[in-house]
Amino acid sequence: MKIAYYPGCTLKTKGKSLETSALACMGQLGIEAEELERWNCCGAVYSLADDDLIHIVAPVRDLIRVKQAGHDKVITLCSMCYNTLARANELMRHDEEKRKTINDFMDEEPDYTGDVQVLHFLDFLRDEIGWDKVKEKVTKPLSGMKVAPYYGCTLLRPKEVAIDRADQPEVMHSFLETLGAEVVDFPGAIQCCGTYQVLGNPDAALKVSHDILSDATSHGAEALALTCPLCDYNMSKRQDQMLQKYEGAREVPIYYFTQLMAIAMGIPVEECHFELNRESSVQLLKSKNLVTG
């Protein structure tokens, strides 16, 4: 099965562990992800202003590239890219007036009408591959590993692009169950990590990220699985600051969902680029005999 793949700005450097592990898993599942030959950054956040169309131009351009490459579906790994592309696509589908303005503005590009389907790897696995198929490829189940699924905001809100129910999502729960992990449900799973406020209000972002992690551990989680390089930055890279600042803060290993998938599928550990994770992430996998050495 061939599908167009849109990486996004972070997945070639700081978030490459998300990309390499995902591509390896796709290979195992017989999915041929064709990275778009030409693409630009989607803008990461969808414009929320009714009179601001210029910020919709970037994601629409990428959707045009998908069509130009001869595809009608595109898959993303970063949930912020997913949200931005999917919302731009909805607008192009349903708002005739804005569609025309955007198409007229991009006079160097072919017109676009929203006929590409934007998918996140998680709903693609659920709806187009199926958990049974994924399970067949699991050779090293994550038995006894207590993982909290963290959805964040952009996979679930707003409704028109949500890949699951906003209040009680299940897709990542099912995903982790398929990998053999013990899924730890916790309320913080759908709360915001503070996202770009790491620039504007770094202390506030640190606090909300810390709240999520302590919520997860207090529900018995040993680790957290997530889908977004900005969530990863806020909760994994900035965790050292939490450990210093908040009394009772505990070390929590953080993984991209695809890293756990790769481990469960017995994919060589190098594909996971664990050097970009917290050290505790590898230690936990070793203690569960999922990674040797």
Partner: peptide, 12 residues
Amino acid sequence: LFRCVACNACTK
């Protein structure tokens, strides 16, 4: 660099 919105005015 990260303020680019891909409007493409530069290329044009």
